[in-house]
C-alpha cells in the first residue's frame, strides 16, 4: 500500500505494510533513529512524535492510519520553543542515559507551544506519560520552567 506523508517538512511516499507502526517506518525505512523503542505499547513515551502538531506514540500508530498527516520528529523539531527546551536541557544537564530524552524534548516542546506559561500541574499532566528510568524528572521540570522563562523574556 502506498502512503503519503509529510515528514519533517518533506513529502514522502512510502510503500509499506499499512499495519507497520510509524516508529518502525521512521527508524527502519527512513533511518530517523532519534525516535526510540521502549515498550511497544504506548506506556513509556520514548517514541513520542508530533502528528499534525499533537504528541503521539509512534509505536502504536499504524502507518496506514495516518495517510496525509504531517509528522515532526526530534531530528527536525524546531522553532523558539524547541530551541528554548534544548538549551535548557543542555544548561541543566538533564540527560543521563539519554534514551528517553528525544521523547521528553518533543513532549516538552509541544507543551510550550500550546501553553507558554505552564503551571507545575500543567507540567505534571503533560509529562507524566514520558518515563525516564534514570529519573531525571527534577531536572526535566526545572528545564521546562527555565525554557518557559526564556520564551517570555
Amino acid at each position: 500500500m502506498t502512503i503519503s506523508l509529510k515528514i519533517n517538512g518533506e513529502d514522502r511516499t512510502l510503500d509499506v505494510d499499512p499495519d507497520t507502526p510509524l516508529l518502525w517506518v521512521l527508524r527502519d525505512e527512513l533511518r530517523l533513529t532519534g525516535t526510540k523503542f521502549g515498550c511497544g505499547i504506548a506506556q513509556c513515551g520514548a517514541c513520542t512524535v508530533l502528528l499534525n502538531g499533537q504528541t503521539r506514540r509512534s509505536c502504536v500508530t499504524p502507518i496506514g492510519a495516518i495517510d496525509g498527516y504531517d509528522v515532526e520528529t526530534i531530528e527536525a523539531v524546531e522553532g523558539p520553543e524547541a530551541e528554548a527546551v534544548q538549551a535548557a536541557w543542555v544548561d541543566l544537564n538533564v540527560p543521563q542515559c539519554g534514551y528517553c530524552q528525544s521523547g521528553q524534548v518533543v513532549a516538552a516542546t509541544a507543551l510550550l507551544r500550546e501553553m507558554p506559561k505552564p503551571t507545575d500541574e500543567d507540567i505534571d499532566n503533560a509529562m507524566a506519560g514520558n518515563l525516564c528510568r534514570c529519573a531525571t524528572y527534577t531536572r526535566i521540570r526545572k528545564a521546562i520552567r527555565q525554557a518557559s522563562d526564556t520564551l517570555e523574556a
Binding site: Q86, G98, V105
Partner: peptide, 20 residues
C-alpha cells in the same frame, strides 16, 4: 556541561539500537 548533553537532547546520539 556534560559532554553528551547536547547530542542526547537533539536525538543525535547513537545507541546500539541505532546501528544499521
Amino acid at each position: 556541561e556534560r559532554l553528551d548533553s547536547m547530542a542526547k537532547s537533539t536525538g543525535a546520539s547513537d545507541f546500539t539500537i541505532d546501528i544499521y
